[in-house]
């Protein structure tokens, strides 16, 4: 065999090997991102299950804030219907639910007799804990998505990514109004 053939063969083997390792990395990152998303899902379900109880115990005490309550219920129902649909839709609707809930929790804070009700305070505590979990699950998902997306975009892994249809993951962004609540000017 001529030397040139051996060199070419060796080069092909090397490139293939590198390609395989890139492919495996992409798969690993994709699985990690999927796994992170299912973690969010678990926490979102938990939140859906908590809301009916909260609505039940606050319903009578806050007849003057019915709009806040109906907003929460509507947002929850929409969010439940959205599960199974696209990720963008889930992110959007769950964001709305987060806003409606934070408004409700703020209202509860404003009424001393609501706050002193042990049922309500336990439920709001539970809900606050769930909100924390959701935000940490979201953070983990976004971190994983960032790593995956960087790999999908960067050369040379982008070649492997486009060859095997790896797509960028959607970020779970917090809905806009919530963001504007904290305004810090660092300039």
């Amino acid at each position: 065999m001529p030397v040139s053939v051996i060199v070419i063969l060796a080069a092909v083997v090397l490139i293939l090997g590198y390609g395989v390792s890139l492919y495996n990395t992409l798969i690993r990152l994709k699985n990690q991102t999927e796994n992170a998303w299912s973690q969010i899902d678990v926490q979102l379900k938990r939140r859906h299950d908590l809301i009916p109880n909260l609505v039940e115990v606050t319903k009578d005490a806050m007849d003057f804030e019915q709009e806040t309550l109906t907003n929460v219920i509507e947002a929850r129902n929409k969010a439940i219907n959205a599960s199974g649909q696209s990720r963008e839709e889930t992110i959007n609707l769950e964001g709305q639910l987060t806003q409606a809930l934070s408004k409700l929790l703020a209202v509860v804070e404003d009424y001393p007799d609501l706050k002193s009700n042990t049922n309500i305070s336990e439920l709001t505590e539970e809900l606050t804990g769930t909100e924390n979990r959701i935000s940490f699950a979201r953070q983990h998902y976004n971190d994983s998505a960032t790593t995956l997306n960087t790999k999908v975009e960067l050369f040379p892994s982008n070649l492997v990514a486009s060859m095997f249809n790896f797509t960028k993951a959607v970020y779970f962004e917090v809905a806009e109004p919530e963001k504007q609540a904290i305004k810090v000017d660092l300039r």
């Binding site: 992170a36 973690q39 804990g129 924390n132 979990r133 699950a137 953070q139 983990h140 994983s144």
Partner: peptide
């Protein structure tokens, strides 16, 4: 327990 669970979630 809550804090530990939160951190477990955050770290995956």
């Amino acid at each position: 327990f809550n804090v530990t669970e939160e951190m477990a979630i955050a770290s995956g």
